[in-house]
Design a protein around this nucleic acid. Sequence first.
DNA 1: CTGAAAGCGCTTACAG
DNA 2: CTGAAAGCGCTTACAG
Lengths: 353, 353
Amino acid sequence: MTERGAPSLIDVAREAGVSTATAGRALGGYGKVSQRTRERVADAASRLGYRTNGLARSMITGSTQTLGVLVSDVSNPFFATALRGITDVTQQAGFEVLLSNTGGDADAERRALAVMSEKRVDGVIVAPALPSDGAHLARAIELSVPVVQLDRLASGVPSADSVTIDNEHAVAEAVGHLLELGHRRIGVITEADGDIARLRSGNRKRGLLPSAVRLRGYFSALTEAGIPVDESLVGVARYDRESAYDATTRLLELTEPPTAMLCTDNVLASGAYRAAQDKGLRMPDDLSLIGFDDEPWTTLVRPGLTIVEQPTYELGAQAGRQLLDRIERGPGRARHVQLKAKLVARDSTAPPG
Amino acid sequence: MTERGAPSLIDVAREAGVSTATAGRALGGYGKVSQRTRERVADAASRLGYRTNGLARSMITGSTQTLGVLVSDVSNPFFATALRGITDVTQQAGFEVLLSNTGGDADAERRALAVMSEKRVDGVIVAPALPSDGAHLARAIELSVPVVQLDRLASGVPSADSVTIDNEHAVAEAVGHLLELGHRRIGVITEADGDIARLRSGNRKRGLLPSAVRLRGYFSALTEAGIPVDESLVGVARYDRESAYDATTRLLELTEPPTAMLCTDNVLASGAYRAAQDKGLRMPDDLSLIGFDDEPWTTLVRPGLTIVEQPTYELGAQAGRQLLDRIERGPGRARHVQLKAKLVARDSTAPPG
DNA sequence: CTGAAAGCGCTTACAG
DNA sequence: CTGAAAGCGCTTACAG
């Protein structure tokens, strides 16, 4: 947008009768300028309708005051809320946010990261689409673009900061709640793909989607309670409502259906809730259900949904703070912040009927 | 992020044994280069780990391939979904999106617009926080930053394109639906502030928030049906669930309460729905309710909520297309696209009990 | 406090 | 097809 005849610092300097260096200092708030010339320059600038060219400035200062945010889908309430947390914190500090939707596609994420890097963002917050491969993130850090991971940890990026929730603990609490109520056949709806057997045996913290970490939490909570895991109670869905609906229906049609179910995510929970409704089940008598995330609908439905409440906004805000901090301090030992999620018991859970 | 020792085009050129002009042409995909040198330059670039400096490029080409988006709150599902529409269309065309939350504050919007303008965005999509004053938008257009208005029309910006829905028609349909069912005492929950009397008499299309336009639609639909407007049935709320809850409760406690209600927005609708539930009213027998926007919860609750369905994603996508188009074509007569909203009747509306 | 000059890293006419 | 030179609009040492 270098429009025809947009005034430059040269024009302002001439109008004010000073050098461009002085004009720049007066307008940019750096260096020393006398009160008088500052005013004279300001007047000249406003007379000419001068706007600083941020591109030129950034090229010299090495800072664009711009941050990149990479998520799979802003229209997902989880990311929308986290994003609000990010922007509130970073705008406050004078940074703008460049947003990219990856659609959960690792290649799209790589490309977007490259573009942001060419645009010289000062740092990046990313919810890695494919946590198992963080090579592109590691490369960004090498090029001295600070990276903060949000909601999930990629493997192969030892030096990237992160903000996540304690998923294992959160799920343990949820399963514990159901166990206390007396449930023994507890199902789970999850988008975790891949090899369940390996997931059960493994114990790495990185490289997994939250759904997978939560699924593992489910396995270990049951195991610790001495309840053998029944894989027919694991309903794997794609990441959408419809698929969760189908997976739930399948579980409910088992000859020995679960008396309670846990969903590893809010999108899946809404599909599951609907499926239970359509099946004609009364919650919590016929089925206890636990979802994730405290969205408005969870208290609007009857019964109100028992959920694992994530501090979603705070997750984003914290990621923003960490990135600002990292930009200020420069490279260093990675800091991993883990926020607590907590169970909010409502009316969709009760002892098995 | 001009990190120490990041290779520049000069380094690549030297490594490849060509001039920087040639290196630039080979890497940037402009001008003519022979196959052989193109390869040689590409090799040199990858050997050095070269990344184009987009800042320098933009300064010369006059284009940043970046668009600004200004909304009040990304965590509002309406804006989140519209934003997804915007980014899908514009990323596809090679543009990135700079996002700013104004919190509905006109000053914040002005500041954010100024910053984006300094960062030399190629254009801007904005849902004006204060439609009654579009002076800053007009100024942006003068500086040749194309502006597309989303969801609402500011006054004083004759040359800005826009994408909105036909609110008057949408509301007329909703009210018509209730009238057909036999309702005569129809309330409304709205965030429209200001002077209701003036709103009723006026007929300008610009300068109003969607809520206000919808409220006016409600007035005229009733008037056309020969039903006198009862201002005690107009529940004015701030823009949040709690306030909508209170406003709804107030209407329901009238000695002659409405038999049906319309909410001018999804946030307000969720507050109203809850209020009706808490009041112990059975919908639709005791009260018919209509909301806005087809959000997941509206089909999860019982009864399912009758709504005015906006093409939210498409609203954003269309705004994106229009902005791209405007950037390509340059200034010209403003184009105003109006999308249709449609009534989706579900179970929250029925004849008065 | 102020200015002349150099330079950030590219692309663009202009020649060849 | 390729190169030398100018220039985009700023900020930054370096002198004064």
